[in-house]
Design a protein around this nucleic acid. Structure first.
Lengths: 331, 331
DNA sequence: CTGAAAGCGCTTACAG
DNA sequence: CTGAAAGCGCTTACAG
């Protein structure tokens, strides 16, 4: 194991003071060219890397950010992690990633325990109540992803646009009775989507919207919704997310209901599994990697005041038509 | 935003020196009970949290660990992240997670850039060559997951046992011509599995092992392998991983080859998607979350010398029989 | 342009 | 049992 090389070692090797080493590395233009070149060469040779901890103690900036998600194994969040990590790295930041295990209390505790080691944290699909989230955001620089709380900077997908595009798609295919298999009531995205759905229904007299109830946002939630969808008389079902859509499709297969001949199914998110099952799932793509990147920009630019391109707090979605939706069956 | 409370604030509030605050919090038994209670109460009231950076400067321990994976979006690694994160948190460690984007150079650079901020790093499915990996492991405390390099602590699944269990399963079902759709030649797991496969074949005169070639470890790799499997005359195919198995199954469906009636398919890993497609995929479960946890223990116990239960460097696998394998068809 | 000094927030011998 | 002092590895006024 290396006996970590410090600024003192570089100073000695280069025959200058530690102040000069510090400047040659961090503020190159405050140092004579010859000195700068010489010092940097010495640093390179020794493999010197300044200690972020020591630097942070003085500058007040750590060069780290935190990311907390409800579940690292959920592919939805995995993509966000990917985007956050990539963008942070490109900006010279390292990232602490933590899993709250869907627990609101853990989520808040993580932010607080990370606070001293990061410049800010990205809180993804926060499970805490508005007050709890606001409290933690008042103590530390926080950016919310997939969630809005008054007074806290946030970024989200254009859920309304997504809902309108699937609905228009199904309407165009001749569907007039459409069911919605909702996600958990505690889900912010679900709330927003339900509202958008009702708004579409209210604006389309020819359309009947059936709400099947709330289901776990999982394959088995979809299985459960499948039987209700069949019983409802709808010719198309929109699921809260792709996993539910996949479960729905599987249950319809078990029940002998052809997709999309007898019933169309659509999901949200465009997670990888939507292309691995047959039929492929028509879905509203929510570009999560891009969302991860954008959340880093939001944190760095707006919250931490880095100069940079202003960030758009709403990300567009896109309907991806695949094989699980088709023309409505004749009555 | 909070004006971070320091040890000085607590000392003032409690009317003691900062040394006493430090001890009351970190070494409670070196302080009189009354003082200890009083100081801790003051700290609690102020919401004081010691700065890990400042502490680490002195103690040489950061309380952080690093985790680098080739791809955060790959569900295989997502599970490992989950396990690492959970165990680290339970042990009071925070974790930096980084994505090397499957790039060996990036992987090494990440370890080096993280080095000063962590006590050690867990390097998952390292893409670098033996020499590169050894070099970085000699500079910093590193534990390898899913990879072995002479002289570097590591932990892996019992790949040989997994291979033997699928093969025994297929043999018992009457299959005598079995194909293997291998993963990338650069994959350590693949190398180990191929060798185990050949060993089984060598020990089973009645068995003919067909090697279909190397495929990308993805759905489309499976599509590609599917046609070769059909042409090979095998009655069963073992895929490098579940994703390849799922692609294989999809291609066989497209070609009108029934699974498992006409051909059996098995995978490795037991990633979630293996239960979401029809037929469900028979697979060798590699408990990745557990592996993540174990790698943290290995790092903390062995490499960093924490007292604790010794860690087993090889994790058992388990064959999960589902619907994609069945009795061999009559010739 | 460069160096000596102060100090970031802590911990830990060293006295008392 | 408690406090004053030194020092971890840096950065940044402040002099020169």
């Amino acid at each position: 194991m290396d006996m970590a090389v410090t600024i003192r070692d570089v100073a000695k090797a280069a025959g200058v003071s530690i102040s000069t080493v510090s400047r040659a590395l961090a503020k190159p233009d405050q140092v004579a060219e010859a000195t700068r070149v010489h010092v940097r060469e010495a640093a390179r040779t020794l493999g010197y890397r300044p200690s972020p901890a020591a630097r942070g103690l003085i500058t007040g900036r750590t060069g780290n950010i935190g990311l907390v998600v409800p579940d690292l194994e959920n592919p939805y969040f995995a993509s966000i992690c990917k985007g956050v990590q990539a963008r942070a790295r490109a900006a010279g930041y390292a990232v602490f990633i933590a899993d709250s295990d869907e627990d609101a209390a853990v989520e808040a505790e993580i932010v607080r325990s990370l606070a001293k080691q990061v410049d800010g944290v990205i809180l993804c699909s926060a499970r805490g109540g508005d007050d709890a989230v606001r409290a933690v955001a008042e103590e530390h620089p926080v950016v919310l992803v997939n969630r809005t709380v008054d007074g806290v900077p946030s970024i989200a997908f254009d859920n309304g646009g997504g809902v309108r595009s699937v609905m228009a798609h199904l309407l165009a295919l001749g569907h007039r009775t459409i069911a919605y298999a909702a996600g958990p009531t505690s889900s912010w995205s679900n709330t927003v989507r339900v509202e958008a759905m009702r708004a579409v229904a209210a604006a389309s007299p020819e359309l009947e919207l059936l709400e099947l109830g709330n289901f776990p946002p999982s394959f088995s939630g979809g299985l459960q919704a499948g039987d209700l969808a069949i019983a409802s008389g709808a010719t198309a079902v929109v699921a809260f997310n792709d996993l539910v859509a996949v479960g729905l499709i599987d249950r319809l297969r078990q029940r002998g209901v052809g997709v999309p001949e007898a019933m169309s199914v659509a999901g949200f998110d465009n997670v990888p599994v939507s292309t691995l099952v047959w039929p492929n799932v028509t879905t509203v793509d929510c570009p999560r990697v891009q969302m991860g990147r954008a959340s880093v920009d939001l944190l760095l630019d707006t919250v931490l005041g880095r100069a940079g391109t202003p960030v758009v707090p709403v990300l567009g979605t896109e309907l991806i038509v695949r094989n699980s939706t088709g023309v409505a069956p004749r009555r």
